[in-house]
Design a protein around this nucleic acid. Structure first.
Lengths: 211, 211
DNA sequence: CGCAATTTTGCAGCCAGTGCAAATTTGCAT
DNA sequence: ATGCAAATTTGCACTGGCTGCAAAATTGCG
């Protein structure tokens, strides 16, 4: 399937849409980092991105969404990785591997993420919304985990264990990220990540290092 | 009105403030349950509560906050209970006990909570915000857990284990509540709650019942 | 009762967010 | 290339969320 040389995806239309989306996000983050989120209007963002204010709302349902809707693609990739995991792995191990792989990817782009994190740190309001969105993704993750474990019966509602594992996994990643953000220069992120999952696998016995 | 004997707290001024606050919350929840959140304006809420629209914003920073800011007092009580827990309990056990006690309390009021849950179910937007607020409380909980475990040194930043335990504990409660909401008539909430914590204590080994 | 502090309210106004229809751009078949 | 259909962008008008400010009402206290 390679007939097209550099066409990574779709037609010109779709590419332009993605470009506009990215331009809006970047403009919003940069303006917010400089002037503070509350002092950045939709009009300013749109102008910096070269579109009309009305167009902004064709891409985001609210002004805040431009700062909040970032992890959507990551979460889809994690779901695929969980489904593709070798069946010898326990559910917790499969999830651990899938998340580790995705996080290694994200660590590349690093720069935009750092700026974005700074913006969120300055507005608890947005931070809270972001956390909420991350957690809301669990439902989809729980579905995938339940599907992987079950023999094939398409259960309409994931069982308690799958829901718990999805939620705890997402929470573990968030804690690892937050902890690492505070001590960015002291620790390697992946070390923090694996320490967190070691704690979980051991049943959270106590503050002692489980290794 | 002359008897000051039943004055549970403060003067008339403070009581009236609490009354207004409660009236706004109740009016908002009832109106939202009936007409849908998006069809309930601040004007309607204020009118039902018997105050002016402007006054609404003296109590809540945004319209959505009236649906989102409910668990604040619960979380303070849980923190106190964790600090008061006997030191023979492991951190996970102490947290489990504190949360179980608080949840038993909340189950009494049941009625308003059920209505409120229904409203949130109808608006993913608010559900996400609520989850975010719950999770944001963890920082305070992590402080308390770290303080309980440490010999006395007031660390400025809770250690990784305390943060993880606080976050996972809050997540576990949320999962238990959500799971129970779906099967409200089949299961007793406390059974779900303890099953979740059994999974955690066992290190999430697999979907099999750990009991 | 009268004074000081607090709370409520109305008002004027900015900005977020939406529906609609016209204008513009893109994909594609001819 | 050219014209047509579909998708996208844009302007416009309008509702409603949200804020600052100062006047009016309410409460606490001597």
């Amino acid at each position: 399937m390679q007939g097209e040389k550099t066409a990574v995806e779709g037609g010109l239309r779709e590419r332009k849409k993605r470009a506009t989306h990215a331009a809006l996000v970047e403009a919003a983050v940069r303006l917010a980092a400089e002037h503070g989120v509350e002092n950045v209007t939709v009009e300013a963002i749109s102008e910096a991105a070269g579109v009309s204010p009305r167009t902004f709302f064709n891409y985001f349902a609210s002004r805040d969404d431009v700062y909040v809707m970032l992890g959507a693609e990551s979460s889809a990739r994690i779901r695929r990785a969980v489904l593709a995991a070798p069946s010898v792995l326990s559910p917790l191990e499969a999830l651990r591997e899938a998340m580790a792989a995705e996080l290694a990817e994200v660590e590349q782009q690093h720069e935009l993420w750092a700026l974005h994190a700074e913006v969120l740190r300055g507005s608890p309001h947005l931070l809270v919304r972001s956390i909420g969105v991350l957690m809301a993704d669990e439902i989809g993750l729980a579905d995938v985990l339940a599907e992987r474990s079950s023999t094939g019966g398409a259960s309409t509602v994931p069982d308690l264990y799958a829901r718990l594992l999805a939620a705890v996994g997402a929470t573990a990643v968030r804690v690892a990220v937050e902890h690492w953000c505070v001590r960015q220069d002291e620790l390697a992120f992946m070390d923090v990540f694996h320490e967190v999952f070691d704690h979980l696998a051991a049943g959270l016995p106590g503050p002692r290092d489980p290794s």
